[in-house]
Each structure stands twice: as C-alpha cells, then as structure tokens.
C-alpha cells in the first residue's frame, strides 16, 4: 500500500542550514548533509532543501551541496528556491537532485512548467504554491507570501497540473509559522480538485495536526520544518501514532 510521506524541510543559505536548528548529537548543526542523513535515519520519507541564498555566488555553493548530499543520501530529495530556468533545473538534476520545486518563476512564466516536464519528465517537477485568503478567496502569493497576485489558488493548481507538474507543494501563508494546524479545508478541496499528489505545508505544531492533514485534508504528504528541527516532534513517534490511527506510513 502506498504510504503517506513525512517530509522535513531544510532552509539553506550559502550551503548551510539556517533557522537556529537545535540538535544535540550533531557536531555541526549547520551542516545540511549531517542533518539530512539524521532525518533519513529517523524515518523521513523525503527531504526538501529550500535555498534562500540571495546572491549568485551563494547559489553556486548550493550545487556543490546538492552533489555532496546526493552521494550520501539514500532517500529522495527535492531542491527549491530561486529556480528560474531550464538550465537551473538541469544543473541541479545533473548533480543528483531527484526533484526540483519551482514557484515564482512558474507564476511569471507558466510555460516553464511545460518545458521542464517535457525535458525532464513530470516526476521531478514539483510546483510550489504559496497562497492565503483575501476576502474569503484563496489567492496565490509570491516572494514567500509577501506579494499578492490576483490568481486564484484553484485555477492555478489546475493549470500547473495541466501543464505537467508531477506534484503540488501547497503552503498556506495563513497557517505557516502558527503551529495551529494545516489548512485542512483548503487542502481537502485542493486534493479533490487535482489528480496529482499534494504535499501539505504550513501550520504543523502537533502530531494531531499531521493526523488531521491526512485524514481530513486528504493530503499525500506533509512537510514541516521547525517542529522537527527543534525536536518538538520526533519523526518515529509521529509515524507510530499515524499508524495507530490507521494512516499508512513507512515504519
């Protein structure tokens, strides 16, 4: 049986993890590879590296990191952040990334999704969608939720599917960072709307939130960062509880 995926997300800047990660037993908590391997051992199903580097020089560090990660990690990982072109994607995939996640560049030029899906296959193209509610309607936002657009979440989700995205990574900006739970209702609607897997992101605070995002949000995967980084939730305990709740997980 296909299992629901638990995906820790690592924010990367200049080849290092950021956001004050607090891990005992790791000699260097800023070392993304050590952290990635630790998560893999603890039962993470996939990993996402989100690059938040500002300069091109920092971005070239990312390529080295991707390659080094690929040599050591035996579970899939996705790389996102600042990807703009077919060339950007080619460089990351060539160096061992399993998938890439594109966001703003796809909104600015939706044909990019078609080009990537044709060249590399849908299986490695994740389209990340950041959205929040504006007067009751879910609207796509850019630049980490700072820049609103007039695009409806539902229209955009359907469009990225039709253009060849293999998965959608949906982040509710209304829930992100709150630790009050995922955007369950929006996720349920999104999962009914599209026929490709949806990764839920934003709002994870407790184990119950994960149970709910699978049971009621009907999501295929759930992504979180700080609850894992600060050890508020251990992946193994999370999966054991999900299993007790009859949610299929890899244990």
């Amino acid at each position: 049986m296909l299992t629901k995926r638990i995906i820790p997300c690592l924010d990367i800047k200049n080849g290092r993890t950021v956001k004050g990660i607090n891990f005992k037993g790791l000699r260097d908590a800023g070392d993304p590879i050590a952290l990635a391997k630790l998560y893999a051992e603890q039962g993470a199903d996939e990993l996402v590296f989100l690059d938040i580097s500002a300069t091109e020089e920092q971005r070239s560090t990312l390529v080295h990191l991707v390659r080094e990660t690929a040599t050591q990690l035996d579970i899939p990982f996705t790389v996102g952040g600042g990807i703009k072109s077919v060339e950007d994607v080619e460089l990351l995939l060539k160096n061992g990334a399993d998938k890439v996640s594109i966001n703003s560049a796809a909104v600015k030029r939706p044909e990019l999704i078609n080009e990537l899906a044709t060249k590399f296959g849908s299986q490695c193209i994740v389209v990340a969608i950041d959205a929040k509610q504006v007067e009751g309607d879910w609207k796509v936002h850019l630049v980490g939720g700072k820049v609103p657009t007039e695009i409806s979440l539902w229209d955009w989700a359907k469009e990225v599917e039709n253009r060849g995205a293999g998965e959608i990574l949906f982040t509710s900006m209304d829930h992100d960072g709150t630790k009050n739970g995922f955007a369950q209702e929006a996720l349920a609607k999104l999962n009914a709307l599209v026929n490709i897997p949806v990764i839920a992101s934003g709002g994870a605070g407790t184990i119950d939130h994960f149970t709910h995002v699978f049971k009621y949000g009907l999501s295929d995967a759930a992504l979180a960062a700080s609850v894992f980084h600060f050890k508020e939730i251990e992946i193994i305990e999370l999966k054991q509880e999900l299993k007790r709740q009859d949610i299929p997980v890899r244990l």
Binding site: L2, T3, R5, Q123, G166, E167, P197, R250
Partner: peptide, 11 residues
C-alpha cells in the same frame, strides 16, 4: 484516472 497519477512515494 481515479487515482492520483503519478504514484509518488513508498509502497
């Protein structure tokens, strides 16, 4: 097409 396609994950 009643399933999510592609199948992605650990089976």
């Amino acid at each position: 097409s009643i399933l999510k396609v592609p199948q992605v994950g650990w089976n």
